[in-house]
């Protein structure tokens, strides 16, 4: 068995409270997952689940008020949590690329594409300007940008939204990283662009052997674009497994609810299945299952102890219902 490319163990991240007498409450509460070379993993969760915080925690690019309280992030055998800022900078971009939600804020509006791409390449690789330009052109072609030579001379506002996002993907790929973290890469795009950018991203990562951590709130978007899927709820991963298995046989009531709540799942005019209530904020979480407040199957045990994620590699979920069922089987 090969060792994972990225291994996150028991990660707790909290925000330092602005108020003196308030405790700092964990927003990420013991996140564990592994990501192997070349794998495409989707991280699915609602807003507030902590998925973007998890992504930024991996490369420690978060807000200054956030702090890793406990846990480890191991990337290519290195402990990222113990690295100095300078060493971290070597890893960001060079080994871990990022694609953010809004391509307009992702690119500097006052520099041409060439200036930005070359700056990105030259700051990490010791090659000549001409060589870097060739790399940039090659990557732009890979992301299907028409007439890349002409595009290089243009400013971000002269490109369309889809082209901008493809340019940022090219930028992330240009340094040949081992992992690309894409945070909602298509949610600022239109439906027709969305499908194209998504397939481009997954195919390019696949063909270049780059692992992809795809963060999204939309399960249907990643259903066919990822090998494995992590479902996140209230700062924890509640279910994980191969995507095709997970969507056809969801174990956790939350995942089941997410799928059942999709409008496609019921015939027009029918009342949709809905998960009642909303995700609790970090302060409201007690020593019980975080989903118990909204779960239709919640029973006494759910209110008494927090379920744990079973160990293993396959499809698994942290829910008392499942552990009870397994105990019954044995």
């Amino acid at each position: 068995m090969t060792s994972p490319l990225l291994k996150v163990t028991d990660l707790h991240v909290n925000f330092i409270s602005r108020w003196p007498n308030e405790p700092n409450i964990d927003v990420l509460r013991g996140v564990c997952f592994e990501l192997y070379r070349g794998e495409r993993v989707a991280l699915v969760g609602e807003s507030g689940a902590g998925k973007s915080l998890l992504a930024t925690s991996i490369i420690q690019l978060f807000d200054s008020s956030a702090r890793i309280r406990q846990g480890q992030v191991t990337f290519e055998g290195q402990q990222l949590t113990q690295l100095k800022p300078k060493q971290l900078r070597q890893i960001r971009g060079r080994r871990i690329g990022m694609v953010f939600q809004d391509p307009m804020t992702n690119l500097n509006p006052s520099l041409t594409l060439e200036q930005q791409l070359l700056e990105c390449i030259l700051s990490h690789r010791s090659i000549s300007r001409a060589e870097a330009r060739l790399v940039a052109l090659h990557k732009l072609r890979q992301v299907h940008i028409p007439a890349p030579e002409a595009r290089l001379q243009q400013y971000p506002h002269q490109l369309s939204a889809g082209q901008r996002q493809r340019a940022t993907i090219a930028m992330a790929l240009a340094l040949e990283p081992a992992l690309i973290i894409a945070d909602e890469p298509t949610s600022a795009l239109d439906v027709t662009m969305q499908a194209e950018v998504m397939s481009l991203l997954t195919h390019l990562c696949h063909s270049n052997g780059v692992a992809l951590l795809l963060i999204t709130h939309d399960l249907s978007l990643v259903a066919h674009a990822s090998d494995r899927c992590l479902i996140m709820y209230a700062g924890q991963i509640v279910e994980q497994g191969p995507t095709s298995v997970l969507i056809n046989d969801a174990q956790h009531p939350y995942t089941q609810g997410l799928i059942k709540a999709l409008p496609q799942m019921s015939s027009p005019g029918q009342t949709l299945f809905q998960i009642p209530g909303q995700m609790p904020v970090a302060q409201e979480l007690g020593n019980h299952c975080a989903f118990a407040t909204r779960c239709e199957f919640a029973h006494d045990r759910c209110w008494q102890q927090t379920p744990t994620m079973p160990t293993g590699n396959g499809h698994r979920a942290s829910c008392h219902l499942l552990t009870a069922a397994q105990a019954g089987d044995e």
């Binding site: 609602e46 999709l262 949709l272 009642p276």
Partner: peptide, 13 residues
């Protein structure tokens, strides 16, 4: 969010 969309759709209907 996806799980909230279903709630609002039901409410509108």
């Amino acid at each position: 969010d996806v799980s909230i969309q279903a709630q609002i759709l039901n409410l509108l209907a």
